[in-house]
Design a protein around this nucleic acid. Structure first.
Length: 817
DNA sequence: ATTCGCAAAGTTTTT
DNA sequence: CTTTGCGAAT
């Protein structure tokens, strides 16, 4: 009855030196009883692990050991002799899947438990049941760019002119429909939404095109599987039988299609375990349906609900901030989260003069911590709302020599050359793939232009045949220039040729494609520097292929390779082993944790995003997004914003995020490093009229304590350059941080900033860290007077408040020490 | 047909 | 500020 369980992770807890124990285990001399799996678990966690039969809802707050529970649950099932083939664990992202796989592997190695993303699970089911939904087993998976191209192709073929909407908008709406299981036949335009009328006209044609090309978009992966299960009772029954134990992670982010699939697979064997947290639902815009989790109990009678409310990740300070914030959501079930962790450092809210200062200070802080050996780069993480905000950080991190990695995904696989090479493979795998053909028929240039392509398309369309087939008969097409026709035929032959040779490893095949297509030669012959880089990228793809081959030694697996490249992106492989600071959006931070977290650009119109402001529900989603960000932090959290941010090439003064007022004022450290000094930047004065006027407006309308929700009402922490604050003292608590941050920033910076550092009277600003030979480190609380009479009021860390005439004092910016 | 250049437009989040 | 798109020149 008792099965052998190999469990080094747990053994380590019992013994100082685990090596001998592991060896004994490996040799089979000792067993670890299943009960030992429970050693680390709390009562609630234990319940969740042990409840194997029947529906289970695990409401898991942030940092509550959810992954621990899920992985142990799987181990426990295996220990209870449930065949691994019957267990499916679905995650939302590849990153989460990787993490889970690694941890399951450590508990119970080499078990064929199906573990991966929902989309991938569906992709593989579709391989087997492709013909049920009108696809070839070798169907192609289109990414968003491909989908847009497909749509464009459809629009052109139907001579449909878009006047106001972009293909992207239409694709988005179609995506929304598919996520809600709305097929072209069911789709109805919605009054007051012009876009939906356009979609009503093209959705069907788009879908037809996809089927004709034997291709699917991301949403189809779910939609097709959902209809497969709905329309084929026998298939559904078999799959329900096969996948008897399903675990679904991040249930709050599932959409209707995913819900339908899960239900269909959990009918005869309702052993569905869902984990999730309504407070972390952040994908509503993509069709995620919060009702799925809120109504789980209704949907699955007899469900057992386990709440994991204890947080093992964050300090008390961080958790209180998170809790206070999320309490502002009205559409929410109350939930308590608590921790027995220590108090920790206060959460900092810092307002920098400019976005550049923000990025540089954070980079400098990290550089300093790393240089001191206090932390490693991977201990930190920087979050922002939109990818567009990453650039400032990239340059600041580069400037300070801090290694970083952009956790953005796509990039590599979206490059033209990579897409092109992969399109050749797609075409080999699926000759009906029109989008792939269009992408490569003239790559490298073969003298096939727009007009000839239009003729080819028309011809194919009229006969209802794939483009590749049409290309074979190119000569027969009316009005087709001889040269183009010949080029098309040669192209078709090349593809067929390659197709015949398409055996062996992917790397080998890729090599054939590069040579056979003439693309490699074209890149080599090219003078352009860009092409040289492309060649390099193609080489990298060869490396990817080689690695894939290594992982799949038995099968050639072209399909599998294409599936992987479609559903996995390059930074999914990013791991904390890599000593780099990850920069990422708040969305991609979900499920991760870091000792030190910086949440940046917490400004109105960014967080909450301007497009979320009208709708209260999406405003709450933005708040949850902030909540997710906050709860990633284990030890230190800094929330920051800038008075001025250059965005989209424009200079803007910002408004602090309304969410900042919702943070518990007494618990956080607020630091306002002051406004940017106009004279420091000549472009400020010369900037276009609009911006200048706006700036002036902001200045006048912003009394000392107004611009910042974060400043405390006495105006002690915040002030503006133009309006010296009342003489109230800064809270000493903020001094260290402010000083620390500015000091590091200024001192670590190279000559670039030297001119900004010259010690004339104008160099001093409110909030600036300064040193004095007698009094030590301090922060400027107020400034008054001009020229020689310029006077600074300084709060010193150790010796209280002093006032100086700057010119006659020994006051220095902290940097100059 | 291709390439080069300039203008315009656009940017939430992800599988 | 970047990327995309379109139009003109070769």
């Amino acid at each position: 009855m008792t099965k052998f369980v190999f469990c080094p992770e747990l053994i380590r807890l019992y013994t100082q030196n685990s090596a001998p124990v592991i060896e004994l285990l490996a040799l089979g001399y000792i067993d670890v009883m299943p009960s030992h799996l429970d050693a680390r678990l709390t009562e609630a966690q234990r319940q969740a692990v042990h409840q194997i039969q029947g529906p289970l809802l695990i409401l898991a707050g942030p940092g509550s050991g959810k992954t621990l529970v899920v992985t142990h649950r799987i181990a426990h099932m295996l220990a209870e002799s449930i065949p691994a083939e019957q267990i499916v664990a679905l995650t939302f992202t590849n990153k989460a899947a990787e993490e889970m796989r690694a941890r399951v592997e450590r508990l119970v190695p080499d078990q064929p438990v199906w573990l991966g993303t929902f989309h991938r699970f569906c992709a593989q089911l579709l391989r087997r049941y492709a013909q049920f939904v009108g696809l070839d087993p070798g169907y192609t998976i289109y990414d968003t760019a491909d989908s847009k191209n497909a749509l464009q192709h459809v629009l052109e073929a139907n001579r449909f002119e878009l006047e106001i909407f972009t293909p992207g908008q239409i694709i988005n709406e179609i995506s929304w429909a598919k996520n809600n299981l709305i097929t072209p036949a069911d789709y109805e335009p919605r009054v007051g939404k012009p876009l939906t009328y356009v979609v009503a006209e093209v959705y069907e044609a788009y879908q037809k095109q996809l089927l004709q090309s034997s291709a699917v978009d991301f949403d189809d992966l779910l939609l097709h599987v959902a209809s497969l299960l709905r329309e084929n009772a026998e298939v559904r029954r078999q799959l329900d039988e096969r996948f008897r134990y399903i675990l679904i992670d991040e249930y709050q982010d599932t959409n209707l299609a995913q819900y339908a699939i899960l239900r269909a697979l959990s009918f005869d064997h309702p052993n569905l375990a869902a984990t999730g947290d309504p407070d972390q639902s952040i994908f509503g815009w993509r069709g995620a349906n919060l009702n799925n989790i809120l109504e789980f109990e209704k949907d699955f009678p007899g469900v057992r609900v386990v709440r994991l409310e204890q947080n093992y990740r964050s300090t008390k300070q961080i958790l209180r901030v998170a809790d206070a914030l999320i309490a502002n959501n009205v559409l929410r079930k109350h939930k308590t989260i608590f921790t027995e962790n220590g108090e920790g450092r206060a959460v900092r809210v810092v307002c920098y003069p400019t976005a550049k200062d923000e990025a540089e200070n954070i980079a400098a802080y990290i550089a300093n911590q790393v240089a001191q050996g206090r932390r490693r780069p991977s201990d930190f993480a920087v979050f922002y709302r939109t990818n567009a905000l990453s650039r400032t950080f990239e340059s600041a991190f580069a400037e300070f020599g801090v290694p970083y990695i952009l956790v953005k995904g796509v990039e590599f696989y979206q490059r033209k050359e990579i897409k092109a090479v992969l399109a050749y493979l797609q075409l080999l795998n699926n000759p009906r793939d029109d989008v792939a053909l269009l992408r490569v028929i003239n790559t490298p240039p073969r003298g096939i232009g727009k007009k000839s392509l239009a003729r080819l398309t028309e011809f194919a369309h009229a006969r209802g045949i794939p483009l590749l087939e049409a290309a074979v008969d190119a000569k027969a097409i009316d009005g087709m220039p001889k040269r183009a026709a010949a080029a098309m035929q040669t192209f078709a032959e090349t593809v067929q040729d390659l197709s015949a040779k398409a055996t062996g490893t992917i790397e080998h095949l890729l090599g054939l494609v590069l040579t056979g297509s003439g693309y490699r030669e074209h890149l080599l012959a090219s003078e352009a520097e860009a092409d040289e880089e492309r060649l390099g990228n193609v080489e990298e793809l060869l490396t990817v292929a080689r690695q894939f081959d290594g992982r799949h030694p038995d099968e050639p697996g072209l399909e599998a390779f294409l599936e992987e490249t479609a559903l996995v992106n390059d930074t999914d492989a990013w791991s904390e082993q890599v000593e780099r600071v990850p920069l990422m959006t708040l969305h991609s931070a979900k499920g991760l944790e870091f000792p030190v977290v910086f949440i940046t650009a917490v400004e109105d119109k960014l967080l909450p995003h301007e497009r979320s402001r009208e709708d209260p529900a999406s405003l709450e989603e933005e708040r949850r997004l902030f909540f997710v960000g906050i709860t990633r932090a284990k030890e230190e959290l800094q929330i920051s914003l800038a008075h001025r941010r250059d965005f989209r090439g424009r200079r803007r003064f910002t408004v602090p995020s309304p969410f900042l007022t919702e943070l518990p004022r007494d618990e956080i450290e607020v630091v306002d490093l002051g406004w940017p000094a106009p004279q420091e930047d000549e472009s400020y004065a010369e900037s276009e009229f609009e911006a200048t006027e706006h700036a002036v407006e902001e200045y006048d309308e912003a009394p000392p304590d107004e611009p910042s929700a974060i400043s405390d009402p006495q105006g002690s922490a915040a002030s503006t350059k133009t309006s010296p604050p009342p003489g109230t003292a800064d809270p000493l608590a903020t001094l260290t941080t402010a000083a620390e941050l500015s000091a590091i920033s200024a001192s670590d910076k190279s000559d670039a900033s030297a001119k900004a550092r010259k010690t004339d009277v104008e160099a001093f600003q409110i909030g600036m860290a300064v040193t004095h030979p007698d009094y030590g480190l301090g922060k400027i609380a107020a400034l008054s007077g001009n020229g020689p009479k310029r006077t600074a009021t300084v709060n010193f860390v150790t010796s209280g408040q002093r006032t100086f005439r700057i010119q006659h004092s020994d006051l220095r910016p902290a940097a100059a020490q």
